[in-house]
Design a protein around this nucleic acid. Sequence first.
RNA 1: CGGGAUGUGGCGCAGUCUGGCAGCGCACCUGCUUUGGGAGCAGGGGGUCGGCGGUUCAAAUCCGCCCAUCCCGACCA
Length: 571
Amino acid sequence: MRWSSLFIPTLREAPAEAEAVSHQLLVRGGFIRQLQSGHYSMLPLGWKVHRRIAEILRQEMDAIGAQEVLLPAIHQAAIWQQSGRWDAIGDDMFRLVDRKGADQVLGMTHEEVIASIGVELSSYRDLPQMWYQIQTKFRDEPRPKSGLLRVREFTMKDSYSIDLDDEGLDRSFNLHHQAYQRIFARLDLHAIPVEASSGAMGGSNSVEFMVESGAGEDDVAVCSGCDYAANLERATATLATVESRPGSEAPERFPTPGIRTIDALAEAGHPAEHQIKTLVYRVDGELALLLLRGDHPFQEQKFLDATGASEITPAESDDIRAALGASPGSLGAVGVDDLVVYADPALEGRTGMTTGANEDDVHYSGVDVDRDIGVDRWVDIRGIVDGEACASCGEPLSVVRCIEAGHIFKLGRKYAEAMGVSVLDADGQSRIPTMGSYGIGVGRAMAAVAETHHDDSGLIWPISIAPYEVVVTVVKVDDEESMAAAEAIYEGLQAAGIEALLDDRDERPGVKFADAELVGFPLRVTVGPRGLQTGHVEVGLRADGSQTEEPVGTVVDTLVGRVEAGRRAGS
RNA sequence: CGGGAUGUGGCGCAGUCUGGCAGCGCACCUGCUUUGGGAGCAGGGGGUCGGCGGUUCAAAUCCGCCCAUCCCGACCA
């Protein structure tokens, strides 16, 4: 294509509202434009990148034997009611009513629809099946942000496996795990597979593919010594031993006027690791006490996963006062027996602890957890902290910010059962198959690449997904010899199956160079009268900024070699 | 949903406090010059100042309500 006839609206400055680097560069490079919050138009360049990513997804899905389908984006409420998610999901789902008054949803995921097709499976001989689609998903996110990273309408590759038994599910799950690693390698994304919470989806195994980036929204604990990595919602670590302070016969009350925080109490001579942090939450509507060591953060998702509770919210201060007789800052669990008390195992066996006495401005010291507190359930609910020791190898864990680029998990039989999927096994017995669900967001992958592939001048696309693999920059378009040489190179590249762009715009060279770098073409051929005098052009590598002289006669072969090597990279 | 901020031409911004002709840079159009790293000169086009209502002789500017966008938090298969 010729640049002069394309729509590539580059901007010198990014819109003020663009914060994330990927957002700024994708807008400045003319890839995307925002229509409204969370909804973006893919302009020609953006759509080309999007299509190339989708093509890699197709190839790798096909390679593991998955079959492409296309499912409806609008579903009747009935199938969501059948699975129980009509009520379970809430405001995240776009809902609408059709002209007949029937409730409809815009699909945010497709387990129900897949299972509704799965009812046609009747024999174990029909299994396993793996079906995937590349389709628009709708989610009414409370807060879309960071350009393409979190949006309300996006294209997703979602696949689903259906197997007779757990061994089959393991096989399908592992095939996806391997396929995802190949996909991210081809996208040149360093994606770490991490243990994750499967959240409200249920299921046993859940692995997220995480790309380290400050623009992400998830915190991941990564071990420096072994390959342990886990989402903070799930991560565990070995605690350094803390020597309990000397105990006493019974808890002792002492006045703490004005002391409301862990820090303030620590300054008063009671270090945080010798304090019990008492939180009051409503767990599925019921007030409960949650106890942690003073210096440990609460990890809500861990609590949900461990207890099976579906909703927890911090209690209102009026309710707290009514139940305990004091305000936050002076709360404790000593002597409390009418509320459920959950405690983190880090408190087990501890003595000489300090905690609130349920009277404003009064605390207890000398608390023996096992003796003085009626713990109903011990549950691991603490969030680990950067630097703690890996539970597997003892080396320090580091906590890094990540973009969730992919997620695979085992659904089990929940959806098959709800939707009435069953097959006969070899013994003629009716069996409910088990399913898996596997997703990669296409636009988010594009943003993740942008987020990790750029410099001060702009984007740096991997050859595998670049909008054009080579840009032929004509320095002086009214120089006939230059144009002729550039056209010949351009046509040679096209003939060799290279995606090439001829920058034939009548612009100053500086403008053309700057645009090429902003847009991020991996390879640039610069054709100008200066080089042509000796029969040379320049080949520039966007990744390292190198420029090398190349005879006009061999430049096409050189470029073809580089592009083909780049396409193979990672695969 | 709670907290904070912002809305003035395609993009970036000034003007708002203290009411009085709607401005600047980039981009765009025409002409001349220039031409290997975001050119110069001259001329030109483009704006319901987020919306509605109010105060006033007069509102981008003051007041009220609403909307949108961004950030933090909550939330989030």
